[in-house]
């Protein structure tokens, strides 16, 4: 019989809940305001694998009992992740992606179809999902974006993500003002990771 996940000691939350949450949020806000920019995000969390400490910092800063959260297959497979989130945020973990306000995606390469998530309503486009996606690398690169928050154009790279990401971002943008928002997180050395925002307002610049 497997040992229940709850038998293991629960990983700690923010050491300084008020200011760590503010710092994490400030990084996410800056990332959303300047899409495609890798914003440094320091985190000393030690969440259960495969949840990364940066994604955990975003989750602890933004989730609470008001925000149903969806976990992708990799995170669902580790019960300790749900236990960690439930204890520290109180967020209900839901199986139906359409019911979730936030989604945590550990496997960026297997990014689920955006259409599975809440897109918002014409009168209330804010009632849409925010996807927090873990990737390995974030930085400047060849995927070019334009739109609010970007002076001219900005190139970014993020891996691993599906090859058709630009097309999916373009399809997401076509729904504007509906659509989902992406927060990409990447681990860095010494707890200094990065976060990048890809809100629905970004327009991928396609080469033609």
């Amino acid at each position: 019989m497997a040992v229940p996940a709850f038998a293991a000691p629960l990983a700690a939350g923010f050491a300084d809940p008020v200011h760590d949450a503010q710092r994490s949020f400030a990084a996410v806000m800056r990332a959303m305001a300047e899409p495609g920019l890798a914003v440094p995000l320091a985190s000393d969390l030690d969440p259960p694998a495969p949840l990364s400490r940066e994604a955990a910092a975003c989750a602890l800063a933004l989730l609470d009992y008001e925000t149903p959260v969806f976990l992708d297959a990799a995170l669902s497979a580790a019960p300790a992740v749900a236990a960690f989130l439930r204890f520290h945020t109180g967020a209900p973990v839901v199986d139906d992606p359409a019911a979730a306000r936030f989604a945590l995606i550990a496997d960026g390469a297997a990014l689920p179809d955006f259409g599975a998530f809440a897109q918002g309503e014409p009168d209330y486009p804010d009632r849409s999902a925010t996807l927090i996606v873990q990737v390995q690398e974030l930085g400047a690169g060849a995927l070019v974006l334009a739109g609010p928050g970007i002076k001219g154009h900005r190139g970014f790279s993020a891996a691993p993500l599906p090859a058709d990401l630009p097309a999916r971002l373009a399809a997401n943008r076509a729904l504007y003002p509906l659509g989902i928002d992406l927060i990409l997180t990447a681990q860095g050395p010494d707890g200094l990771g990065a976060v990048m925002g890809l809100p629905r307002s970004v327009k991928p610049v396609m080469e033609d």
């Binding site: 806000m29 959303m32 933004l62 486009p125 504007y176 928002d181 809100p199 629905r200």
Partner: peptide, 8 residues
């Protein structure tokens, strides 16, 4: 605020 930024 995050949603507001995403939908200027």
């Amino acid at each position: 605020i995050l949603k507001a930024i995403a939908i200027p």
